[in-house]
């Protein structure tokens, strides 16, 4: 089958769990290529992914893949691969049995099942552990096995819910390469994460989800601009806090400077974090500034979202 060209479409999609809102009025089209779904924990990413993989029935609106409804339409899953977020397995099977069983459900012959499971296990580097019980796998191995079951049938649409969680740097690189290869082949990939740099490493096209709604969608630069407009707090632990503060108070992008005597840190609020770090690095190198620790207390998605929704 020639891959690609499949689109996931949601139209006024909503989901309630009793009185609790899971997702509200989401209309979006996910085209071939990589789309990043970004949002803090509990934002509604997983609900959206469960709706587009037919695990949940929409309370309102529609969700289609290739113009076909997803709910109770198992045939669509010949072309869809899904890696769930939850760490769930048939613990008393081996990695190979788990993968072979699921490939069997996709309708492959015994020979194809063997061939595809061998290739998928090799891809995620689990060939040596393939005949061990999943119960004994480490977190990283379990994550890799989840990814292998999503790709073993070479789907046209790959839906990955927090796929890089628990992976070591090497495995992360491999998975990122796989996702990019899928894009090159014209397939559709939807990846969710609550970690911005993970999404940035994968795609330029992102959708921001917050409190069950799409907050913004578009190019990463647009989102970056929104984030950059957000004043960042940078905490610097140093032996000479006042000396350091004196070097920054004159900078136009530094909005405020505070001292935390108990922690021995200086808290800078800046509108341009990159320029701030560049100057700090230069000072440390040129003037031998004694910097023990640099942290960004609000450098997380939640604070960005709070800023974007005007909290």
């Amino acid at each position: 089958m020639i891959p690609g060209g499949l689109a996931v479409r949601a139209d006024k999609l909503g989901k309630w769990y009793g009185n609790v809102l899971g997702l509200s009025d989401v209309s979006i089209e996910i085209r071939p290529g990589i789309t990043g779904l970004l949002g803090p924990n509990g934002a509604g990413k997983s609900t959206f992914m469960k709706l587009i993989t037919g695990q949940l029935r929409p309370s309102i609106g529609t969700v289609t893949i290739d113009n076909q409804p997803v709910w109770n339409n198992p045939e669509i899953f010949r072309r869809v691969g899904f890696c769930p977020e939850q760490d769930a397995f048939y613990e008393d099977t081996t990695g190979r049995e788990f993968l072979s069983g699921l490939l069997g459900l996709s309708g492959y012959s015994a020979a194809e099942v063997r061939d595809r499971s061998d290739r998928a296990l090799a891809f995620v580097g689990l060939e040596d552990a393939a005949d061990r019980l999943i119960r004994g796998y480490s977190r990283g191995m379990r994550q890799r096995l989840k990814i292998s079951q999503a790709i073993a049938h070479e789907p046209d649409i790959l839906i990955l819910d927090e796929p890089l969680n628990g992976l070591d740097p090497l495995s992360k690189r491999k998975v990122i390469k796989l996702i990019k290869d899928y894009r090159t082949e014209g397939r559709t990939v939807l990846v969710s994460s609550h970690v911005l740099p993970e999404i940035e490493a994968l795609t330029q096209s992102i959708v921001l989800v917050h409190q069950g709604k799409i907050l913004a969608e578009g190019d990463i630069h647009y989102i970056r601009d929104l984030i950059d407009a957000h004043p960042h707090v940078v905490a610097v632990k140093t032996g000479d806090g006042r000396g350091l503060a004196a070097k920054f108070v004159g900078e136009a992008d530094v909005l405020s400077v505070r001292f935390d005597e108990t922690e021995g840190t200086v808290l800078f609020e800046t509108r341009n974090r990159d320029r701030f770090f560049e100057r700090l690095t230069r000072l440390a190198a040129d003037e031998g500034l004694d910097v023990e620790e640099i942290t960004s207390p609000d450098d997380n998605l939640q604070s960005v979202f709070d800023y974007l929704v005007g909290k």
Binding site: Q55, Q86, S106
Partner: peptide
């Protein structure tokens, strides 16, 4: 309970 329903639910197998 084990949250494994996701796997068969996303395969081309009728319920």
């Amino acid at each position: 309970d084990n949250k494994t329903l996701t796997y068969p639910a996303t395969r081309p197998v009728s319920k």
